Each structure stands twice: as structure tokens, then as C-alpha cells.
Computed example of a mutant assay.
Amino acid sequence: MSLPTTSAALPAFTLERHASGRLVYTGADGVPRQGVTPVRAFPVSAPEAGLSLVSAEGHELVWIDRPADLPPPLRALIDEELAHREFMPEISRIREVSTFSTPSTWTVETDRGETTLVLKVEEDIRRLPGRRLLITSGHGIVFSVRDMGALDRASRKFLERFL
């Protein structure tokens, strides 16, 4: 199924999912480009601000300033692709920390279940505006804490030891 854009602010293009599961972009030139990837400009601080559709070779094909203005079926296709690309579990509770120096092993509850992660250095915890945190595990997986203040008291105490 081919989904066209209809907004005057966007260049005309269609986007569809190939049988292989990859996105296919067809611009005004009529040339289909397979393996297109949506890439947010600011995935953490402003996820709704704008995104690019990038070719398999890494070239920007189109800039979408306001993804919310896209037709719903097209937006759903892009959101589905972004969900696969932007895997970021959200920590809801810190159950246990092996030691208060690094490296340390943390047992956490996330929106995807309980897991353990290794914090290699204290700099793997990044503060963001609005009491948000990003915690990068020793395996490179980035975990999110949306609001440090919303965590239970024990979880906040664990975090305060490292911040």
C-alpha cells in the first residue's frame, strides 16, 4: 500500500512497506528508494520536533518539520519504524545496586520487564531537563528515567549516590 503526502508544506512523496519489511520512498522524481530510515532530529529532548527520511546510503531524502501534520496512515508507518529503531526501556524502579562505586551491577524494573545492567562509570548517567535521566549500560543499551521524582524513595536514594 502506497501512502502519499498531501500537505502543501511537504514535497510530494509516497512511502510504503516492501514485502521484505523495508520502507520504500518515492519522491517527485518517481524513483523508488528501498531501505529508507526515519531519523529524528532530537529523539530525546524534542521527539516531535522534526525528522528526516534517510536513504540506505545515508542521504537525506526529505525533511519533515512537523511529523504530527502527516496523514495518519503515513504517520503510523513512520512511528512503527521508529519504534523498532529507538529501543529505550524506561526504568520504573531500581531494586538493587551491587556497590556504590563503579563498575556496579543494577537490578531494575522497566516497562519491558526486570533486567540487570552494568554501570561502568558514573558519567554513564546523563541528566536531562525536567528531572529526566539517561543511563547507558555497559552493553550500550540506553535506559530512560522520565521523572526521577516519580520513582519510589529507595530508587531515588540509589540514584542520588551516583549523581
Rank of each mutant, 00 (worst) to 15 (best):
L77D: 07
L119T: 02
G140T: 08
L74E: 02
L133A: 06
G50K: 00
V24H: 05
D124F: 03
K157N: 13
D111Q: 06
S155K: 04
S101V: 14
L70Y: 02
P129Q: 11
I135N: 01
G30K: 00
V97W: 03
S104L: 02
L3I: 15
R161S: 13
D152Q: 01
S92D: 07
L10G: 06
P43Y: 00
S137R: 04
P129D: 14
A46S: 14
F158P: 01
E60H: 06
D79K: 07
K157L: 14
V31I: 15
R95M: 11
S52E: 12
L159G: 01
R17V: 12
A150Y: 01
S55R: 00
S98C: 06
S92C: 07
A9E: 15
A8N: 10
Y25W: 12
H59Y: 09
I91V: 15
D79Y: 05
A56K: 11
T37G: 00
L82Y: 04
S55G: 13
A56V: 14
V118S: 06
L53F: 04
P67M: 08
G140A: 07
T99P: 00
P4A: 09
S2G: 15
L117F: 09
P129S: 13
R127K: 12
S7W: 00
R85E: 13
T102L: 04
V24S: 07
E160C: 04
R66F: 08
S2E: 15
F158T: 00
L10M: 10
T102I: 05
V54M: 10
V44W: 10
T105W: 05
L163R: 10
V145G: 01
D79G: 03
D152I: 02
T26C: 11
M148Y: 05
E90T: 15
T107F: 03
P4T: 07
M148D: 06
S52R: 12
D65N: 10
M88R: 15
R131G: 10
E86W: 03
A68V: 12
V145A: 06
L77Y: 05
I94L: 13
I141D: 08
L133C: 11
G27C: 03
P47Q: 05
G113N: 08
E123C: 07
L23P: 01
S104C: 15
T5C: 09
F143T: 00
V62T: 11
T6F: 08
W106R: 05
P103A: 08
L117S: 02
R127A: 14
V108S: 03
R112P: 01
D29G: 09
D124A: 15
P71M: 04
E114G: 01
T99W: 02
P71I: 09
L51A: 06
W63L: 12
V39F: 00
G138T: 09
T115M: 07
G21I: 05
F162N: 03
L61N: 05
T105E: 14
L163T: 09
S144E: 14
E48N: 11
S2H: 08
M1R: 09
E122G: 13
M1N: 09
R85S: 14
T6W: 05
M88E: 12
S45Q: 13
A8D: 14
L151N: 01
E123V: 07
R153K: 13
